[in-house]
Amino acid sequence: MNWTAIKSIYFFEMARFFRTLAQSFISPVISTSLYFVVFGAAIGSRIQEVDGVSYGAFIVPGLIMLTIMTQGISNASFGIYFPKFIGTIYELLSAPVNFLEIVIGYVGAAATKSLFIGLVILATSFFFVDLTIAHPVAMMAFMVLTCTSFALFGFIIGIWAKSFEQLQLVPLLVVTPLIFLGGSFYSISMLPPFWQTVTLFNPVVYLVSGFRWAFFGLADVPIITSLAAIGGFTALCLFAIWWIFRTGWRIRS
């Protein structure tokens, strides 16, 4: 394992994040505050409680998930697409590194960035709602796993994309709707039975449910199913990346 190379990629990518640290902080704090105002105050005044949890607190796990999933994808996809776009990928391809080292470097940095933003949102939430975390270790584990798996997914999108438009396509058209329809802001038990069944085909449901369990001990689906879903998704992404580097698809002519 070329640990020096992994460290170099990781810190080079993190440097990009630290260059724009203020924006990285301010943007999630403002958008989270807006969500609390709109969902928590406006809608929350009508819903009051969901399964014994105040609506304002209930949406916190969903909000964090929404952000770390989209941030994980955008950080990792941009991280690998940018060298492709400006041509510096030649250096990566001619360096004595294998696919795993490249992935650990890029995906590790992207996951760290989204984890960091997730924690900022969690901290912001404490200003708006009374929040107690039932299973803090499980909460952190879910967060790390989600950041990593969505960064892996973003990495694939970054390799697949041939333009900046394509880079935005999957996150906007597929991921965001899945997150909004995945029970981020409601319990799926609030839906009519037919839509409850349909929703179970949405993989995000399992992640949000597991994460919410870590906060409140409440879940739409069994926790083991949530873990299996996130584990399966991570394995699928890893397999896809292994195949990409083995065949050189869209990176090596």
């Binding site: 070329n2 020096t4 190379a5 460290k7 170099s8 080079f12 510096t88 250096e91 360096a95």
Partner: peptide, 26 residues
């Protein structure tokens, strides 16, 4: 390898980009 095109990270400093290359090569 010195490529034909000028492929460089525009926002990085000279020292950082050279240091990165050294690390990338282990």
């Amino acid at each position: 390898l010195v490529p034909q095109e000028i492929n460089l990270e525009p926002f990085e400093t000279v020292m950082n980009t050279v240091r990165f290359s050294r690390g990338l090569f282990g």
